[in-house]
Design a binder for these strands. Structure first.
Length: 483
RNA sequence: GGCCCCGUCGCCAAGUGGUAAGGCAGAGGUCUGCAAAACCUCCAUCACCAGUUCAAAUCUGGUCGGGGCCUCCA
C-alpha cells in the first residue's frame, strides 16, 4: 500500500510521489530563536521527526532541512530589553533549542541552516522578485506586491476580500497594498543590518525560508511542514516568494500539525498559558511526552493535562514491562513448537510490521500504529505467560519487532529496566517518601514472613499501601514501587 | 462579521458508507500465604433532529455545544 498524506494545498489525502523516486526533500520551519521553546514546538518537532524517521524506514533517502530564524523583530526587541546583542540572544536560544530537541530524542536533520548565514541568497532572491515585477522598493524597504501573484492565498484558501478586514499598515511602512509584506526592512538605529542594493537593512520574516529551502533543496521539493498557524501568513508568503521567483511549483505536499491546547484553549504566548519544554521535562520523562503526543493524530488538536501525561506514562510502562520480561527470556532450548492456543498471538506478532506500516502509510496515523504496538505487547505477554522454552525464539523475534517499530516512532529506545527504574526514582522523588524507611519496613516484614507471621506481614503491607507504596514479592526477595 | 474544524465508552483516542482499534480507569476470574505484574472474561451504536441509501459514527440539511484562523505564534 502506498504512502498517502494529507496535503493542505489540495485539502485531501494524496498518494505520495516524490520528485525523484526513492528520495525525499523535506523542509520544516524551525523556530524564531528569542525564547525557550514550549510544548507546541515540541509537538511540531516530534511530529516531523517521526515523519523523517518513517520515510527513512519506508526506504527513502531523505534530506531534512530545519531552519533557525535568527534575525527578526522579536529577537531584536528581546535583545534590547536585555541589553545584549541580538546575535548573542539568538545564540543562547539556539543552544537551548538544541538541548531541548536532544532531550526529546529527536534525530538531527540533514541541515540546520541559520537565516543570517544566507543573507547573500536572500538579497539575490529579493532582487529577482523586483526584476520580475513582483516586489518594489520603498524608502529602503522592499515589499512583495501580493496582487501581482495570481496564486496568492491558495494555501490558506481565502480571498483578498476576506483578508482585507484584518490587514494593517504599521506606522512607518510604505506599502501600496495593506496586504503587501516586507521582504527587506531598512535598518533602524541599533538594529543588526547588512549592506544591500536598497541600503543597510535586514530580511523580513518569510524570505529566509524561501532562500534556505531553494539553496538546500532546490526550487521544487517534496514536503514542507510546520504548525497550522504558519499556513497564513508564513507559508502563503513563502509560496508567493519562491514560485514568484522561480516560476516553478514550490512544494508538492504541505503538512501542518495541530495545536497543543491547555484547558481546551490554544496554548500561546499571547494567552500566557504556555509551558516550556524545560518545565515539562522537569516533571515528565521525555519519552512519556513523546508518547503522549503520538497517541493523537498529528493534525488533531491535543489537550495537555497532567492526567493525560500520567496515563501516557502508565501505558508506556506497560510496553517497557513487556520488553523487560521478554529480554530476560533465555535462549531457545526447545523445538520451537507453538501450542494451538498461542497461534493467534504468534500471528499477531508476525503481522505487526505490516499493520504498523499500513497505519503509518495512512497519513502517519501514529495513534493507530501505537494501537497495533499494544496488540503486539499483549501477544508478547501471552507468550511470556506460557513460560515455555519452546517459545524463546518467537519471543525474541517479537521483542525485536517491537523495538524496531518503536524506534520509528522514537520510542522504546531505553534499556527497559533502566527506564522503569528511572520512572520509579522520579516518582519517589516526587512523593517525598523516604526509601530507607520503606526498606526497613520491608526487612521487618521479611522476618515476619519467615516466621509465617502473616498477620504482621500484612499489617506492614497495609501501612505502606496507605502511603502509596506497593510491595512486590518475587523469587529474589521483595521490591517495591509507588502506586 | 467572514472562512474553517471538531463533538466516538468514566477519561484519552483511532475509525470517514458495510455494521465500533488501542491505552488509562472499572468489574469478575487465574496466579499469589496476602498482594503486584501478567493472562482470560466483561464494559459504547458514535451530541441531537430530519433526510439519502439495501446499509451511516462515517454522506446531506438543520439544531445545540466546543475550538481555530482572519494580527506575532509550532
Amino acid at each position: 500500500m502506498p504512502l498517502r498524506l494529507y496535503n493542505t494545498l489540495s485539502g485531501q489525502k494524496e498518494e505520495f510521489r516524490p520528485l525523484v523516486p526513492g528520495q525525499v526533500g523535506m523542509y520544516v520551519c524551525g523556530v524564531t530563536v528569542y525564547d525557550y521553546c514550549h510544548l507546541g514546538h515540541a509537538r511540531a518537532n516530534i511530529v516531523f521527526d517521526v515523519v523523517y524517521r518513517y520515510l527513512q524506514y519506508a526506504g527513502y533517502r531523505v534530506t531534512y532541512v530545519r531552519n533557525y530564524t535568527d534575525v527578526d523583530d522579536k529577537i531584536i526587541n528581546r535583545a534590547n530589553e536585555r541589553g545584549i546583542s541580538s546575535q548573542e540572544l539568538a545564540e543562547t536560544f539556539i543552544r537551548a533549542f538544541d538541548e531541548d530537541m536532544a532531550a526529546l530524542g529527536l534525530a538531527t536533520p540533514t541541515h540546520q541552516p541559520k537565516a543570517t548565514e544566507f543573507i547573500p541568497q536572500i538579497i539575490a532572491l529579493v532582487e529577482k522578485l523586483i526584476a520580475r515585477g513582483l516586489a518594489y522598493e520603498s524608502a529602503g524597504d522592499v515589499y512583495y506586491s501580493v496582487d501581482k501573484f495570481a496564486g496568492y492565498l491558495k494555501l490558506s484558501k481565502r480571498t483578498m476580500e476576506e483578508m482585507q478586514a484584518g490587514a494593517r499598515i504599521a506606522p512607518g511602512e510604505q506599502k501600496r497594498n495593506p496586504m503587501d509584506f516586507a521582504l527587506w526592512k531598512a535598518a533602524k538605529p541599533g538594529e543588526p543590518s547588512w549592506a544591500s542594493p536598497w541600503g543597510a537593512g535586514r530580511p523580513g520574516w518569510h524570505i529566509e525560508c524561501s532562500a534556505m529551502s531553494s539553496t538546500l533543496l532546490g526550487d521544487s521539493f517534496d514536503i514542507h511542514g510546520g504548525g497550522r498557524d504558519l499556513i497564513f501568513p508564513h507559508h502563503e508568503n513563502e509560496i508567493a516568494q519562491s514560485e514568484g521567483a522561480s516560476g516553478q511549483p514550490f512544494v508538492r505536499y504541505w503538512l501542518h500539525n495541530g495545536f497543543v491546547n491547555v484547558n481546551q484553549e490554544k496554548m500561546s504566548k499571547s494567552l500566557g498559558n504556555f509551558f516550556t519544554i524545560r518545565d515539562i521535562l522537569d516533571k515528565y520523562d521525555a519519552e512519556v511526552v513523546r508518547f503522549f503526543i503520538l497517541t493523537a493524530h498529528y493534525r488533531s488538536p491535543i489537550d495537555f493535562a497532567d492526567q493525560q501525561l500520567d496515563e501516557a506514562g502508565q501505558a508506556l510502562a506497560r510496553c517497557y514491562e513487556a520488553l523487560d520480561q521478554a529480554g530476560r527470556v533465555s535462549a531457545a532450548t526447545g523445538d520451537g513448537a507453538v501450542p494451538a492456543e498461542l497461534a493467534e498471538a504468534v500471528g499477531r506478532l508476525a503481522e505487526l510490521d505490516s499493520r504498523f506500516r499500513e497505519a503509518m502509510d495512512d497519513d502517519f496515523n501514529t495513534a493507530q500504529a501505537i494501537g497495533h504496538l499494544f496488540e503486539g505487547v499483549r501477544a508478547l505477554n501471552r507468550l511470556l505467560a506460557a513460560d515455555s522454552p519452546d517459545l524463546a525464539g518467537t519471543i525474541a523475534a517479537g521483542r525485536e519487532t517491537l523495538l524496531r517499530l518503536g524506534e520509528v516512532l522514537g520510542l522504546f529506545r531505553s534499556v527497559p529496566a533502566d527506564w522503569l527504574n528511572r520512572q520509579a526514582q522520579r516518582r519517589l522523588a516526587a512523593s517525598g517518601l523516604d526509601a530507607a524507611a520503606i526498606e526497613a519496613l520491608i526487612n521487618e516484614r521479611q522476618a515476619a514472613r519467615k516466621e509465617r507471621n502473616f498477620k504482621r506481614a500484612d499489617e506492614i503491607r497495609d501501612i505502606l499501601v496507605e502511603k502509596g507504596v506497593l510491595l512486590l514479592d518475587g523469587p529474589e526477595g521483595t521490591s517495591w514501587k509507588l502506586k
